[in-house]
Design a protein around this nucleic acid. Structure first.
Lengths: 325, 325
DNA sequence: TTGTATGCGTTATCAT
DNA sequence: ATGATAACGCATACAA
């Protein structure tokens, strides 16, 4: 690969001058500028960003730690994060933690070693102090770690209310809420809280289940849903904490011959694109993945640039009614 | 952030010695080794990988260019690529090209500038010479660019045969194949070729449709499928080139009141995890995403290490019969 | 307007 | 067994 020295030699000047045209700073004659640019073209020169990072103390890389890109919700968020990062001249280093504490720690060290300029944390299984000691611009998704680390989440409480109220309005008499794991300290827990509050207020029979702490296991969901229906055959409404789980519920309904929405009404969560494909369409609470991604990148960059950013960033959710209710 | 110099100062030696214990090379007394390690612990030292990359001329970063992580197939492949990259001490830089030629070019330049050690190309919209001029370890997914660039694909022809034969065996009289765009020069075209051959051999009525060239647009799929059924109401079997499209077909069947598999049989492609969730289960040709990811990483690393690698790497597919046939 | 010298954090080659 | 010094490719303060 050609270096700045090669260009300089070719043009017959020093690297300083080449660097000047490269960065468009300081005085340079139009003549020189042109000759340098030609030489760059000819040698197909690409500045070595590693060297630049070293001297600038800035890598223009953002680290992203999420549980699993292949989970549709995270896949969508990742797509948008990458899009906005690129748009702003940043690159994205992808890390799948699989909600594993050790892995998460290793990734954070790796990212620090790689001199990333900031970290977007979509996976948080560690203890608070492990995050506060990171000393790097950071944004978390769906978890409030301290009041110093900015977080982004959608309005989980509102989402929980919308979902629960809808099921009640539609006449459900016994409603199950299948939550993600409540020990992860995620803000998603607020969906559960809203569910509890609304449903006890209205005095409606209900149960709450939660998934295992480690990752997204479709087989586990299947087990969970199937045993739920076995133990509570009188359930006529389910508020699931993801569209994936909702789809699993729908599938089980088919299997045991419950018709949706007549015998059973289902509300999912996330509003993933794939939800459109399932029949009957699953009513869901849509999280604004695009805005989440956009804001995550913006907050990271603002911190990198030394600006103050707002710590609490709650984006609106939207109820999308389809045929499952 | 602490540097190697800080450690050296703290211990009272030169950076040379610290570097020695860091890399475990050359002579170092056990005593020194221990003191250095303690100092590293205390200062929470992380070697600066940027500086290392610069002098070693090796970044330990692999670039991945795909159309879209949020597409389930690529999401799964990406997950495994990241997994195996990490396992082998490499980091992953993610790029979503959206099948855009210009974007792809920009990403390639960016990756070269970033000194990545190799590129996994899952998006290929450029011309052959644009790839051959890259001069970097490379592996392509599902496209044979030249006989010098190794590629990985699953057995598309076999997949096409399996799907087509199954539909015929199940008694379909008029079969549609909905293909990805055939001008992209993807090996996925072989699915189409197999379809054509099998079906003309058996003299069965058929039609072929293809999707637009740019990206994965659910609305476009919907249009396509719906107009297909309008124009060819007598179709009783569909071989779709992805599970997403197959799900779209299924959805349209519900909408227009065709029952599956009685009036219409559907075979998808990819075997994405989400396929399990849809009811009725969509029969599909499963691509070995995990093996694809694993092999992609292996082939890149072997090239980085200067080894010769096999150019043609075709992995087996598997027919998974579910209720849609 | 251009060049010289220095340094970013690390590794590698010689010395000692 | 340890240290001094150069080098990786680039950017910048200071000279000229």
């Amino acid at each position: 690969m050609a270096t700045i020295k090669d260009i300089a030699d070719k043009v017959g000047v020093t690297v300083t001058s080449v660097s000047r045209v490269l960065n468009n700073r300081g005085y340079i004659s139009e003549m020189l500028k042109k000759r340098v640019q030609e030489a760059m073209e000819e040698l197909n020169y690409q500045p070595n960003e590693v060297a630049r990072s070293l001297i600038r103390k800035k890598s223009n890389i953002i680290g992203l730690i999420i549980p699993d890109v292949s989970h549709p919700f995270f896949g969508e968020v990742t797509k948008y994060i990458e899009y906005y990062a690129d748009k702003n001249g940043y690159k994205l280093l992808l890390c799948n933690s699989k909600l594993n504490k050790l892995k998460e720690k290793e990734y954070i060290n790796m990212l620090k070693g790689s001199q990333v300029d900031g970290i977007i944390m979509g996976s948080h299984t560690m203890d608070t102090k492990d995050y506060t000691s990171i000393k790097l611009p950071m944004v978390t998704l769906d978890r409030q770690i301290t009041d110093t680390i900015p977080y982004i989440s959608s309005d989980n409480y509102k989402g929980g209310e919308l979902a629960t109220n809808l099921l009640i309005k539609k006449g459900c008499k016994k409603i199950a809420h299948i939550s993600g794991n409540l020990h992860l300290n995620l803000l998603a827990k607020l969906r559960h809280d809203a569910f509890k509050k609304v449903i006890t207020n209205k005095g409606i029979e209900h149960i709450v289940l939660q998934t295992e702490i480690n990752g997204f296991n479709y087989d586990e969901y299947e087990q969970l849903v199937s045993s739920m229906f076995r133990e509570h055959p009188d359930i006529d409404g389910v508020f699931a904490s993801s569209d994936i789980i909702a789809a699993q519920v729908l599938k089980e309904c088919y299997r045991i011959g419950k018709s949706v929405p007549e015998d059973m009404k289902i509300v999912g969560y996330d509003g993933i694109q794939l939800g459109q494909l399932i029949t009957p369409g699953i009513t869901t609470i849509k999280q604004p993945t695009k805005e989440i991604g956009k804001m995550a990148v913006r907050l990271i960059i603002e911190q990198i640039e030394g600006q103050d950013v707002s710590k609490e960033n709650i984006l609106p959710v939207k109820l999308i009614e389809r045929q499952s209710t």
